[in-house]
Write a protein that binds this DNA or RNA. Structure first.
Lengths: 183, 183
DNA sequence: CTAAACTTTCAGTAATTTCTGAAAGTTTAG
DNA sequence: CTAAACTTTCAGAAATTACTGAAAGTTTAG
């Protein structure tokens, strides 16, 4: 398998970005390759295309599977396993968000809850707890809302986006719109 | 300056999370310390509290200022500079999102645009470009929308959140609500 | 101007993360 | 069962990233 210059550029870029998105360079490259290549790829093909060791490839694929970004694909008559993207771009993007939320937000929310339980030892600590509480609530809002977006799916997200600043206005009307809401 | 056990736990945790949020351990600790401590802190106090070198502290503060998360605060009569959070929790959170968008999304969008410009060299490449386009549009939706949320501010975000799944329903009514919208 | 108080820079070192490749493991064909 | 085809693991090497502390730089007081 050989990469066209187009695929090449994209693979290299996703490698560079990889670390910013929560995985390392080679894992980023592998993901780009699998997503952009139409046919299922074997581990060996991936290793060759990216010039990385077979061992590294194996670990990278394991990680991509843990993130549920690629999945195995068996080809009848073939001994080895092949790999394909685990879903549409939208699905993959959601998986990345989800996984990052688990790593970046959840542990903090959990700690903040614990710290807010502690009985404060001083005046100072009362204020500190108030701040921690503020952080907690903000994270909660943001994650709840991003969940919501994921549930909407891409089309509705698109509608919402086209609405743009209209969202603010809509909010002002919402009581009239949904008067039956149980408060 | 000595840290209460409460502040201590939070500082250590934000240090551990630091790398996941785009900066390193000590920078994370420094941010937590400055945010949770009521009084302005000098660089030396920060270095002492966290047991890190003065040099490292200087670089960390530089980074936090680049992120616009802390700012200098001059105390009349004092020779040295002090540091305080650059704004409310909401402001700080927005700065982090913003900065991460710049690092994690913008460069990719820019590359994708470039790659979509290239004239494809094969059938294959036409499909690849279609995929890249799909990724581009998704990133665009997500960032546009997160911008929108930032503009709303914390109170409206809260209203929106309480609405929960109601958002989907509201969307169905939006045409009736905003009939004057210029399409 | 000089000295004191303070900050920044940066070369070298330490810590951490990633990668390789050989060895061990697994599966299937026969 | 054995051998071949393939995958995974993991110890050590390489690459990257973070940290220290001494030296150079800056600012202010006098």
């Amino acid at each position: 398998m050989k990469m066209s210059p187009l695929v090449m550029s994209a693979v290299i870029h996703f490698g560079e970005m990889g670390s910013r998105w929560g995985f390392n360079r080679t894992v980023g490259q592998m993901l780009a390759l699998v997503v952009l290549h139409e046919e299922p790829l074997s581990a060996q093909e991936i290793a060759d295309a990216l010039s990385i060791s077979r061992g590294n490839t194996s670990m990278g694929l394991k990680e991509l599977q843990a993130w549920q970004l690629v999945k195995q694909h068996h080809i009848p008559g073939e001994r080895k396993e092949f790999f394909v993207p685990a879903g549409s771009i939208w699905v993959l993007a959601n998986r990345v968000f989800e996984e990052r939320r688990k790593r970046e937000i959840d542990p903090t929310m959990s700690l903040l809850r614990d710290l807010m339980m502690d009985t404060p030892n001083s005046e100072q600590d009362v204020n500190v707890q108030a701040r921690l509480n503020e952080i907690h609530d903000l994270l909660e809002s943001v994650t709840a809302w991003s969940q919501e977006l994921q549930n909407l799916g891409p089309e509705k997200l698109d509608t919402l986006m086209k609405l743009g600043a209209g969202v603010g206005r809509i909010l002002e009307f919402k009581d009239k719109l949904l008067p039956a809401k149980s408060k």
